[in-house]
Nucleic acid binder design. Structure first.
Lengths: 247, 247
DNA sequence: TCAAAAGTGTTAACTGTACACCCATGT
DNA sequence: ACATGGGTGTACAGTTAACACTTTTGA
């Protein structure tokens, strides 16, 4: 393995959020032969920006392109770099021992959070260090490598803050969705109950979603209206920001 | 010069804001023999976090410790690294040519903004590359090295956003200040006029400033009340955040 | 026709906004 | 005593919050 194409000392870690069964999930990798989980991550090629590097990580794990991503923090504590898991991976023949030199470097990691439509991630792909890649519920995190738990926590805090400013949550839903679905998403991320009627009014007043004139049939109650985003207005609001008072 | 103590490929740049004569100023360095200005910056020692490295930059330039600082963005565009100014500094004998190897690296820079009390910075110190270090008004920026103009712009955008969420502006004022002074600061940063009476009410309702029972004498009008921060409550609010509607 | 959950509307409480007036200070 | 600008109060408008009723769907 040759790491000379990568910027030394810098890595990228992605906290990929998905929303399923009214739970916020994170895409995680289970390391081979170790009882440890890790965030999808990678290194930055010499001619890449970190954003492009993050795009590649996202593409490799989820198969998707054009995912919404947001750089949220850089993790620079010198204590965050540990190689014990790398050494174990080497002794389990997962990694060749000539890579230890690279991993012995201290790494500064740029944290991105990404929002994906859960159902579009059909078969998340593990990387060369891991045996599986799967969704893990945010409130049932397993034991994580290095400072990855802190990275997730911070990503979540930032997502939470951002949701008050911009309609980012929309990236977690499929193209078509109902008002109750959108509300469940907001309630999950913000961790508070919101009045159904007030929520609807506020969201509609943003003028970023459109009634498709369809209804979601199939349940034992009145069929909710199916909406989709008004992409033009959505991007406008995303840029400008707003403040929804959902306290 | 020996750079082996530093983390390769990573630098720290600080946008140091000060407030003087109702203007927002930034601390800038004038490069030796070049008609170019630069932000205070530095590299990260092997056992330092980026925050500590930024602290050192701030200490070296301003002489102050414990300055309020906030990491706001990482600049990773591969095109941002250029060495033409370094080469010119070498040909002017400012730098020894054996440092070119280090500076030829591509750098990823972690941007911090810092807020200091203008009057406490008595004699800003240039670094080894620069001939002077001084305050420059935000709206009269000279020609800047690399992407430093973009870094400043982004720092300002972030400061602006943060001011709506947390009472950060306080760090730009001396320990004791009056309501009109605080308002002038807000109006400058937010770039909008605010109604005097409404401003006062909102700020006071945050309960983070205390009437010192003193008055600022000396001008031809009613002497304004002198306030100071309630540090305990201030730090609490800083952590929790709020939203002031000053639109 | 019933339960469940969605759509719609109304009012009271609160917050923000736009003002006018009075007061202290130095000349 | 007057000009200047700071401190205080108040009423209106706009927004948010709390809540009740009607409608649609599948069983």
């Amino acid at each position: 393995m040759d790491f000379s194409d990568y910027v030394p000392s810098v890595s990228v870690d992605c906290v990929v959020f998905g929303f399923h069964q009214n739970q916020l999930k994170v895409l995680m990798l289970k390391l081979k032969h170790l009882n440890l989980w890790a965030l999808p991550g990678g290194f930055i090629e010499n001619n890449q920006s970190a954003t492009i590097a993050a795009d590649k990580v996202l593409k490799d794990r989820t198969g998707l392109e054009g995912i919404y991503q947001q750089q949220f923090h850089v993790f620079t504590d010198p204590e965050r770099s540990q190689t014990s898991h790398i050494e174990q991976l080497i002794s389990n023949d997962v990694l060749d021992k000539d890579v230890l030199g690279w991993f012995k470097n201290r790494f500064i990691s740029i944290g991105y959070y990404a929002l994906v439509e859960y159902s579009k991630v059909n078969k998340p792909e593990p990387d060369f260090l891991s045996e599986k890649c799967q969704w893990v519920s945010l409130d049932e995190l397993p034991e994580l490598m290095l400072d990855h738990e802190e990275i997730i926590k911070r990503a979540y805090v930032r997502l939470n803050q951002d949701l008050y400013q911009k309609p980012v949550g929309i990236n977690l839903l499929p193209e078509k969705f109902t008002m109750p679905e959108l509300q469940a998403l907001y309630e999950t991320i913000l961790q508070k109950k919101i009045d159904r009627r007030n929520f609807r009014r506020k969201i509609l007043s943003l003028n970023i979603i459109i009634d498709t004139k369809e209804k979601r049939m199939g349940s034992n109650n009145r069929a909710p209206i199916v909406y989709k985003f008004d992409k033009t207005k959505y991007h406008q609001v995303l840029k400008e920001g707003y403040h929804i008072n959902l306290f």
